[in-house]
Design a protein around this nucleic acid. Structure first.
Lengths: 205, 205
DNA sequence: TAGATTGTTAATCGATTAACAATC
DNA sequence: TAGATTGTTAATCGATTAACAATC
């Protein structure tokens, strides 16, 4: 965690707020309150106010928050008021689905290259991407100055892919492989494993 | 949260432990310690011991934990020592990828039906599944006694799909749509939104 | 003005960690 | 036995909540 003294758990909630606010805006709403937002998200209004107050006073007493303005501010805080180029490794079923996904673009991210090591897949075209050999990563990633990557390869290959990505300059990894990645302190990792979420729920059933 | 007085945050870590232990077993290891497991996961050994102690004494002083035994016990606690039938709603790119994913089966889950409301997709065959009309959910789900579902439809449709699933008897939902779902207290929801994870990391870049 | 809601402080609550006796 | 590691208690740390003055 290089910068700042703001709890990581707070940072983790900001994208959730941003998503809910964007939704409210899409519904045509212009103003909201910590109370309303909290109700929608199942979070206390006090927590929302406290979280936001780490970054400034975005609201107005008696009125609440201007949705458009708060969205703008949160995007700035999260640095998603720009577009981040992302590399994708893995062009199997999952990688293909990720490559197709249209939801990245309007929320700050753009996949710019897709890698795989399967000779059958290299050269294949997925939407606007041509699958490149994984050995080209070391060249392509620094060339574009890409700092974020998504891993969608089998569990066995994920750690090695991560190591090579980091060597190529990647500093943030979204890992879809069902395995824990070990990375240096200055590299950020997030895991997506649907089974973990399912297993968390079966406990209560 | 119907049952138990064990913190939800502890339950949330168990699947992570289970995944790491399964990995260790796959590497041919038979015994591990809270210290080793902690190192792999970036968690303190004390936390692992404390978490496990909620459910019993699974280790042996001086030795550590028998991996196979601990896996078995954790599966029992999480109720994934059986196979859960899961309904999938949405047969677009994402739903298709989810349907193809082989990783559910060996970790306690089996997709048994796929629904969509697009006439072009109904009747289509995805692996072993034939896409069924979404209007059949109310019949098919109770018939099979299915209690878990995954939502892979566009954000606009997700809340309505969730409402109908719950009406049909679903009590745990894994939501891939980038929107917060509001559900009754006795229904469990987990969200998967890759953009939220990416946005959480850009803050630090 | 009266009503509403913020931003912030202090109090509460809960989770993590440190430490160690028990024991394999 | 000596060394290692658990399970558990108590101490610490941090996050959430309640409450309210400020103010729109």
């Amino acid at each position: 965690m290089p910068s700042s003294n703001i709890p990581d758990i707070v940072i983790g909630r900001l994208p959730i707020y941003l998503r809910a606010l964007t939704r409210l805006a899409a519904e045509g709403r212009e103003v909201t309150s910590s109370h309303e937002l909290g109700q929608r998200l199942g979070i206390s209004s006090a927590q929302i106010r406290k979280d936001l107050s780490h970054f400034g006073g975005f609201g107005k007493q008696g009125t609440g928050y201007q949705i458009a303005y708060l969205i703008e501010q949160l995007k700035q805080v999260l640095q998603v008021d720009r577009e981040w180029e992302v590399a994708l490794v893995g062009a199997g079923d999952l990688g293909r689905a990720v490559a197709h996904y249209k939801g990245f673009l309007y929320r700050g991210f753009k996949i710019v290259c897709v890698f795989d090591n399967d000779p059958d897949k290299i050269g294949e075209v997925i939407d606007e991407y041509t699958v490149q050999p994984i050995d080209d990563m070391q060249q392509v990633i620094p060339e574009h100055g890409i700092r974020m990557a998504m891993i969608a390869v089998p569990a066995e290959a994920a750690q090695e892919v991560a190591d090579r990505l980091i060597e190529a300059g990647i500093r943030a990894i979204l890992n879809y492989a069902p395995i824990n990645l070990n990375v240096p302190d200055d590299v950020h990792v997030q895991h997506i494993d649907p089974v973990v979420h399912l297993q968390r729920m079966t406990y209560y059933l």
